[in-house]
């Protein structure tokens, strides 16, 4: 079944120059493998489409049940150069949470 990522994770995004990074964190540690399986760098790149011109790197933080995505050339030049309203990528975290991910219904069981 497909669910929005927000059902199993929360996120925060920010900037460094023209880079945007999005940390995605599983609400329950046991859902971290779902993030690892469904949120590939390719999938995230496809999701953000022409908003992100450069490549996307993914880093794993199993200790926090989190993934960190680094999006290159993501902010129209970034900082003061960017003409975007969201020159700092603050709204990217919310956007990724609306992405649909494929899970097995049993994975969402309330009991471990």
């Amino acid at each position: 079944m497909k669910i929005p990522l927000s059902r199993i994770a929360h996120a925060r995004s920010g900037d460094k120059g023209d880079l945007c990074n999005i940390g995605v964190i599983a609400h329950r540690e046991r859902d971290y493998p779902i993030l690892v399986r469904t949120l590939t760098a390719e999938r995230v790149k496809e999701y953000f489409g022409c908003l992100v011109l450069g490549p996307i790197e993914r880093y794993e933080l199993p200790n926090l049940g989190a993934l960190n995505f680094v999006l290159h050339q993501a902010l129209d030049g970034g900082g003061t150069i960017s003409l975007r309203t969201d020159a700092q990528g603050k709204a990217f975290g919310g956007a990724i949470l609306l992405m649909e991910v494929e899970v097995d219904e049993r994975e969402l069981d309330p009991q471990p």
Partner: peptide
């Protein structure tokens, strides 16, 4: 959750 969100804020390679 609030601490983890800030730990992953504006970082690159977490290692």
């Amino acid at each position: 959750a609030t601490v983890k969100e800030q730990l992953v804020y504006e970082i690159g390679d977490p290692r």
